[in-house]
Write a protein that binds this DNA or RNA. Sequence first.
RNA 1: GGGCCUGUAGCUCAGUUGGUUAGAGCAGAGCGCUCAUAACGCUUUUGUCGCAGGUUCGAGUCCUGCCGGGCCUACCA
Length: 572
Amino acid sequence: MARILITSALPYINGIKHLGNLVGSQLPADLYARYNRARGHEVMFICATDEHGTPAELAAAKADKPVADYCAELHDVQAKIAADFRLSFDHFGRSSSPQNHALTQHFAGQLADNGLIEEVSDKQVYSVADGRFLPDRYIEGTCPNCGHEGARGDQCDECTKQLSPTDLIDPYSTISGSKDLEVRETKHLFLRQSKLRNDLDAWISAKTDWPILTTSIAKKWLHDGDGLRDRGITRDLDWGVPVKRGTADWPGMEGKVFYVWFDAPIEYIGATAEWAETQGLEDDAWQRWWRTDKGADDVRYVQFMGKDNVPFHTLSFPATIMGSNEPWKLVDYIKSFNYLNYDGGQFSTSKGRGVFMDQALSLLPSDYWRWWLLSHAPENSDAEFTWENFQASVNKDLADVLGNFASRVTKFCRSKFGEVVPEGGTYGDAEQALVDTLTTRIKTYGDHMDAMEVRKSAAELRAIWVAGNEYLQAAAPWSAIKTDPEAAAASIRLSLNLIRLYAVLSSPFIPDASADLLAAMNTTDDSWPTDVTAALQTLPAGHAFTVPEVSFAKITDAQREEWQEKFAGTRD
RNA sequence: GGGCCUGUAGCUCAGUUGGUUAGAGCAGAGCGCUCAUAACGCUUUUGUCGCAGGUUCGAGUCCUGCCGGGCCUACCA
């Protein structure tokens, strides 16, 4: 039994995430977590809300709530939706937790002790009306290059020129619209990750089995221009982890907090500590996942994230870990994803374009979304969600191939033998051929899942479902029943066991339907098949079952058109 | 501007270190079955592998150039 630590990139706190966010990190991480649990491994699956930073403060202000209250509320909202999507986190934490505060301050202290923190005085734009320093992109004005009037302080979208806020003509705050801006001097801590460049480069270069997407982004940052640059890790904000050097005050840093991108990945550790607390366990319970001197040596640590998160997970966070000079667990594998687009354009949180997690669940059960999203995961390039494709895929795969199989077998059995596994007959060549096919395919399925090849796993699972229909067609118990009832009984006995097997194999993708099928088969045996012949004898003759409800109702053309219309515009 | 990814059947995608007649699912066509959510099974049509050169006995695969799509470019997170 292996021990596997799985983290999903932290969803930001300022609202409900869309399907593109979901498929880029949380959902594939859940697939991997469920699969490894099913294989009998010890899994720690961690996620949390990322709660600090300017957008959180502004969202709270807009909602007219104290930021702490706002984050607490949105955390609960996100936790509820995650649970409804059957994301099986062992703990869904908060980056604002006391554990993360302490850990973040601890890491900063270690880094400072090791000469990896530098104090840098910088000039930043301060908005008097807003009473805060503004990140570059919260300042807009006229582009000095092309004259575009809506240029942001970091870049002009019109001519794509890189800008500094002070370059802008007639700059104003995008928060208040105020032009009462001034440049103020402010001091910040910088992580001297440039000093770790060679270590990081060697580490990344050794990861030859990582997705190209992951390593190419890391190498770009390592080698671009003068190489990896140092990074500011503090901000002038109220909401966040106060800057401290371990437990001691940090002279000159009063009133400042750590930058959200410094404390967010540390929350992977913090959330595991939160988990221990909620379980009433001591520190060693979480440290055995994270400290190689306390049992984490044999842990395999896998991270899931969208490509936008890759630089922080390949460089900044490892620099924090390495630079601490303490035996913290470094990531072993980073699975990164491209973006999912929506019907010809991008999903957009700010523009409310696309389908959001809560809306999705108001239309259909989570399994529909899980199946489509995972079987179309944007692994090699950006992928696109269209309602036509969604309808066609879900109807065919889930309703016709899998759902109908369970339906035709159980209903036939009920009408001919009653709701009990029939006895009699023996297995022959057709059954052996099926076993051989399944043995091969289940092995392939497992290999793809181990490799986190999400689309290929889905395709193989589907092929396993198809094998059942092929067998049934060849065995044709509806014909056999007339001349050789024993043969029909044997086919149906096998097919009923096949339903149970499908429920087990499918559970990482579609946990609710799998649970329903197991319940209908009146069994709690969800053990992963190692010997297919044995697995297909789990339900013995005489075992009672019930005909399951229709697992997957089809999406009608009318529904599809209605949803297409409904989500074409923007979210209220 | 620079870097990276990508372009394969009508659609969504596989194609290992270059090696025979380029594959899968869906859609289309034909046949079969009738237990089942008009579901299932079998058979089957379609490709100048973005374009143009080059290397090679041999290129979807390697090299160069061009065209199209996308992402990143360090103060959004």
